[in-house]
Amino acid sequence: MNRLSDSALAARVAFDIPDGAYVNLGIGKPTHVSAYVPEGREVIYHSENGILGVGPTPPEGEEDVEMIDASKRYITTAPGASFFEHSDSFAMMRGGHLDIAVLGAYQVAENGDLANWATLDQKFPPAVGGAMDLVVGVPKIFVMMQHTNRDGSPKLLRKCTYPLTGLGVVSRVYTDLAVLDVTSEGFRLVELTKGNSLTDVQAVTEATIHA
């Protein structure tokens, strides 16, 4: 099957973010989305640790340990940026002020349930961060992930088996194999990565994909 590279996947997600949007990027793969904003659009990135208007990575030698994003990467400010404390930052997230959040996931269910903070491994300490706040407060939740686990087992399920982050919260899922919307009937196909057939993608997806 044809798989999008991480950078191509980031560019695909960025294509769906409109001009003027306020966006939070989750840690991991979603942080790459900001590098692919299409020409002519201004997107304002929020980072939960207290900045609106995250700019590009600073040049080597100009890093400031007190200028980081939620992934703990060094950042700069974009024009129009502001700093604020955690209460204000989470008022933006929980109060419905952001437009889109892009998150990673362990599992997504066909009813939009998201699991991305804990596994069933008791030895592995759970870490929720701001994920539960984002999913209840941001109108559009985009999930960006590999279509399957490393061992080939499905991540798009009828029902999540890991502890949930939020119930019925996911709007759209972007994977290396396909883009899917979460609808009242379940997953609906938006597009397949070039060269893939729905039959092939369905074969590695537990939930039904509606054409």
Binding site: E48, R94, V128
Partner: peptide, 8 residues
């Protein structure tokens, strides 16, 4: 473990 916004 407390969600970050709930912690704040």
């Amino acid at each position: 473990v407390v969600p970050q916004g709930t912690l704040a």
